[in-house]
């Protein structure tokens, strides 16, 4: 996990620096347009950390993969830094096995509620032709609502909030004046419950309105 931090940080810093010359002076006094951008996406998630299966379960089977969904609303001001909120549903993992009384199943998922900061690797006042302008990194902090589902001698659906983080990198392809398609690789980490997952998503990005 530490290696990944390093790599993402290097991507962020290298990208930000190497594209420096491509930018206009973003601290001009005249303000540019502000835009509200809504993204929805889905893809594949992979639970990337240690999970615990009780030793009382015989012949356990584990699944680390899931299909996550994301909704993100971002404010794009007239500079590089962007701010918004993200939520969605991230499957974490599930397992099943034979317990003394019957077959048992456990499923864990999370609803992130995150404050997200995002930055394109380059900041251009003109078009989005630059590759670096289309690449962005994002980081978020906030809460995850961790949901657990148990089927054994009855069904228990339960949930608990956990503080956590998010880190991501994305590529956005313009497909019209108002719409973009993006692909994003994200790492979700709910620290209190020690749940973490990588998510690869395809997103539809709608530049809802500008002012």
């Amino acid at each position: 996990m530490k290696n990944l931090f390093i790599v993402v940080l290097t991507v962020l810093l290298a990208g930000l620096s190497e594209t420096a010359g491509a930018q206009s002076d973003s601290s001009e006094t005249k303000r540019g347009p502000y835009t509200l951008v809504v993204s929805v996406g889905g893809g594949l998630s992979y639970y990337s950390t240690r999970l615990g299966v009780p030793s009382s379960l015989e012949q356990p089977t584990v699944s680390r993969f899931g299909i996550p969904a994301t909704l993100r609303v971002m404010w794009h001001p007239d500079h590089r830094l962007r701010l918004g909120l993200e939520t969605g549903l991230v499957p974490m993992y599930s397992y099943q096995g034979n317990a003394p009384a019957s077959r048992a199943r456990v499923r864990v998922s999370a609803i992130p509620i995150l404050l997200v900061f995002s930055m394109p690797l380059a900041w251009l006042s003109g078009t989005e032709r630059s590759l670096a302008r289309r690449l962005a990194v994002s980081g978020g902090t906030g809460a995850y609502l961790i949901r657990s589902h148990l089927e054994y001698a009855g069904v228990v659906n339960s949930s608990r909030p956990s503080v956590g983080w998010m880190l991501g990198g994305s590529y956005t392809q313009p497909i019209g004046r108002k719409f973009r398609v993006a692909t994003e690789l994200k790492w979700f980490n709910a620290s209190a419950t020690e749940d973490a997952a990588f998510v690869l998503q395809l997103q539809l990005v709608w530049r809802a309105f500008s002012w």
């Binding site: 290696n3 290298a14 990588f198």
Partner: peptide
């Protein structure tokens, strides 16, 4: 898989640079 992802991101970073 984490290493693979790390490698992919590193490659992307170097390519971009």
């Amino acid at each position: 898989i984490r290493l693979w992802l790390s490698g992919a991101l590193l490659a992307a970073s170097v390519s971009l640079a």
